[in-house]
Design a protein around this nucleic acid. Structure first.
Lengths: 250, 250
DNA sequence: CTTGACCCTGACGCGACGTCAGGCTGCACT
DNA sequence: AGTGCAGCCTGACGTCGCGTCAGGGTCAAG
């Protein structure tokens, strides 16, 4: 793909791609004889990560060091991005709530104190940006080291994690084969094991999020195919069990 | 208040306040004989609005024209900020969902198409920024005019809106006086009228949001005081009725 | 073989501040 | 009355992430 196509796909300008090339953040993997930039799939992957981190407010130089760190794989980035996005979600919700509160106060002729009105601003620049950002995931230099230790799992641990996942899928398939209803306690227990395995090995996955995944298993054909390959009807079965399990946890 | 205090309160640097002063976005209402900037309550109000619009991505010059527009009052700004924040909330949720989907895909060894992975980026720069932002609330020049027409209500209409609000509160007070339980159909109907009046006159207020307001009426002393002034016990009564009404709408 | 869309590399500009430098102010403490 | 020292002032230059030309090559279609 050349610049124009990538630009259209990713929703950035051509100039931005030039810029990322010049500063070494994202250099296309090839060039045509005429000097045209040629972007491959791996470049798109990287661009995607870049855009996410950029959206989250990281300076480009830091994005480069994050992505060039050999100790952090894609899963690591996804988990961090997920956590940061959820922070942002909370913060936005707080801001929405603050605006609603102020509208309501105005409608009633009440005036809020300055401290109160700024509180949603007051504690994310000095705290989330100083304390959190440099304490939560380290100062980006030492953090790379610590990650390489915690993430030394990539050999045996990854196999264990994969085995755990396969095991849950196997239990689902067995339950389906034995005619255990997807709404039954037994099926929901397997779903709960599925959820906890995700939370332990990948990312914090509360019941509501788990239900979302369940829906995706039947809505997205590739996820459906993954389960159908194990056993026909398994996608719908897992989806139903997962959502039923989420519903009973309320 | 001088720069340092404002800076600490609002979570911005002193330099930022200097900058806002120089470009005329926010000039303090006074100076001491020695030339120290002195910020008053009105300046804090304005700073609050500035920070919100800035957070939402508006260039400072546009923020200035928005805030200096005599046709748009504070309520107008709050409503627009509310709408923009809710857009942002949706977008962030979409991004969270996209990251979750990708994590799940990776865990299962599935690879997503590039289009799919960029779709959360693809349709907010070219659409929300070109089509929406310049069509949803106009091109900021003509928009100011149209707003002055729609918001020509400030005289009689405001009185009507206020009367509607007072009426609902009167009905609540009467129901309380007559011993109508807060969970009863009758009380919930008044709550529903309350919600619809807010939606018509102020901002779109779905049941979930309304329940949030209900909680605030007993959690924030000033809102509590507003209702207690009308009748003792009314704050708790309204709060309960509003939440009950929200619960029955599911 | 021309035309128009697309690509290249400089190079300058800009918005929103960060970051000194050099100097006044205010107040507490001796 | 002097002496800090934190806090305020005004330039002025630097930075980041691009936008926006300028001047010129490239490529598929007609």
């Amino acid at each position: 793909m050349n610049v124009g196509e990538v630009s259209a796909l990713a929703g950035v300008t051509v100039r931005t791609l030039h810029h990322y090339d010049r500063i070494g953040l994202l250099s296309p993997s090839g060039r045509t004889p005429a000097g045209y930039r040629q972007y491959g799939p791996a470049d798109l992957d990287r661009l995607h990560q870049v855009l996410l981190y950029r959206e989250l407010g990281f300076p480009l130089e830091e994005v480069a060091t994050l992505l060039d760190d050999p100790g952090a794989d894609t899963g690591e980035h996804l988990r961090r991005q997920h956590a940061l996005l959820r922070d942002r979600l909370e913060r936005t919700q707080a801001m929405v709530a603050a605006v609603e509160k102020e509208m309501e106060a105005r409608a009633m002729g009440i005036s809020l104190t300055p401290e109160e009105r700024f509180e949603v601003f007051g504690d994310w620049l000095p705290e989330e940006y100083e304390a959190e950002a440099e304490q939560k995931w380290g100062d980006t230099e030492a953090w790379a080291q610590s990650r390489q230790r915690t993430r030394a799992m990539t050999k045996e641990d990854w196999l264990r994690v994969k085995a755990e996942g396969d095991d849950v899928e196997r239990r689902f398939a067995e339950a389906l084969r034995n005619g255990v209803p997807a709404h039954s306690e037994q099926a929901m227990d397997i779903a709960e094991a599925h959820r906890q395995q995700i939370s332990r090995n990948f990312y914090d996955c509360p019941p509501g999020m788990h239900a979302g995944l369940g829906r995706m298993y039947v809505e997205d054909e590739r996820f459906t195919a993954h389960y159908e390959e194990i056993a026909p009807g398994l996608a719908q079965y897992v989806s139903t069990a997962v959502q039923a399990n989420a519903a009973r946890q309320t």
